[in-house]
Design a protein around this nucleic acid. Structure first.
Lengths: 232, 232
DNA sequence: ACCTGAACACCGTTCAAGT
DNA sequence: ACCTGAACACCGTTCAAGT
């Protein structure tokens, strides 16, 4: 009774790249970045290591595929019918924000995604989604790439930072308590070396992640409008 | 002759945390993120594994220490005497940009730094440096934390993205050639799925990393001024 | 207090062998 | 074409033993 066999998984439901990637995402979600190993994967899929290597070149490719699958899903629920491109940009950004929140390993992955495959599919996907709205915003054509890139950079950076916070906490932890602790540490830093940190310790403790993230988006949007939208 | 003993290192110059961290930085710089192993480290320092563990708790702590050392050095050359806080912010940002450019492993490290030690020293260091200038800019007090955080997020994200590009290239590679290749890939994407990417493929090919990074800083600064500096 | 180095548990990847 | 699973090389970390 105690030694219940763990998930015999319907006997051989035909291995496939998709099933492997899905299992990888599950492992990453439940066990964290360190939880994705070929041994855990073979056990969960009731197969051998070689079988996985038949469908996937190596671990890096598997991670890329997992990232791509999750990002694609997050961007699939595109906001339709929103009149203001600004609202659409906010919606796309929040979609990624939530995806990273649900799959914290995405943060690290997205940060290093760019360093891998030059023809990586994740970055173009995100850039395309944001870029269309940048164009709709009326940004000068020669600044399309710049404006879209800055936005994407902020979105990924901001979402990643929040995921990091969430990860430190771990599931079920008390966010207020955690922020309180960090805030205390900040308040006790050397007043000569860290005057600013001390001054914002309280703001840090009371800030709302989502609100702050959106305020950052608006800030970038404001800069884009001021500098790159003619006649504003 | 062929089997020259590699660096006997002046026989026992007393191991210390600093020497270990310095060796770690060297290894990371020369051999990349995967190059930092305890075996390589023991060889370079002509010692045993246990000796290193006497000075450093584990690999994560070693990576944190290496990151901290490099970031501290980058921020140490603080711009003095610049009249405009905007110029100072640009200088600090470029300092980090160059540091990540010199030590590409910093990008990944900084992206995940936040997820580690809540009392991490790297983030406060950067936030402090940027925050002081944000204050000098005349930002409303209740928006100090927000404005500084957004700036730091953009700086780290932007610098990381550039480091990623540099890393894909590898030392001595031809940047123009690389961008040309990626640009070609972008131009050949599905016109229905990726109209924006196709439209900016050329801008991407011709963009200058540093220029673009600075333009992003100015964009964020413009947003901060518009939204959070009273009377502007 | 500081260092040595063998040993342990674990990992990604390969590959001869099977069907 | 697809899968098995033992084997290999390598890694982070521990620890009894030394000085």
């Amino acid at each position: 009774m105690a030694t219940r066999a763990r998930r015999p998984q319907r006997r051989s439901e035909a291995l496939s790249r998709e099933r492997i990637v899905a299992a990888a995402v599950e492992l990453l979600d439940t066990a964290g970045e360190g939880g994705l190993t070929f041994r855990a994967l073979t056990e969960r899929l009731a197969t051998g290591a070689g079988a996985i290597y038949w469908h996937v070149a190596n671990k890096d490719e598997l991670l890329d595929a997992a990232t791509d699958a999750v990002v694609a899903a997050a961007l699939a629920v595109e906001p339709t019918g929103a009149a203001d491109p600004r609202d659409e940009i906010r919606a796309v950004a929040l979609g990624l924000f939530d995806a990273i929140d649900e799959h914290p390993w995405l943060a690290t992955q997205l940060a290093t995604e760019l360093s891998r495959s030059p023809s990586g599919t994740v970055t173009p996907r995100i850039l395309e989604s944001i870029g269309r709205r940048v164009r709709a915003l009326g940004v000068r054509e020669d600044s399309w790439f710049l404006a879209a890139t800055v936005l994407v950079q902020y979105i990924l950076g901001g979402a990643a930072q929040n995921a990091a916070n969430a990860r430190v906490l771990g599931p079920g932890a008390n966010r207020d308590e955690f922020l309180g602790t960090v805030s205390k540490v900040w308040e006790e830093l050397d007043p000569d070396e860290y005057p600013f940190i001390r001054a914002v310790a309280e703001q840090m403790r009371d800030h709302d992640d989502r609100e702050q993230f959106l305020a950052g988006i608006d800030l970038v949007l404001s800069g884009i409008t001021t500098l790159y939208v003619p006649g504003e």
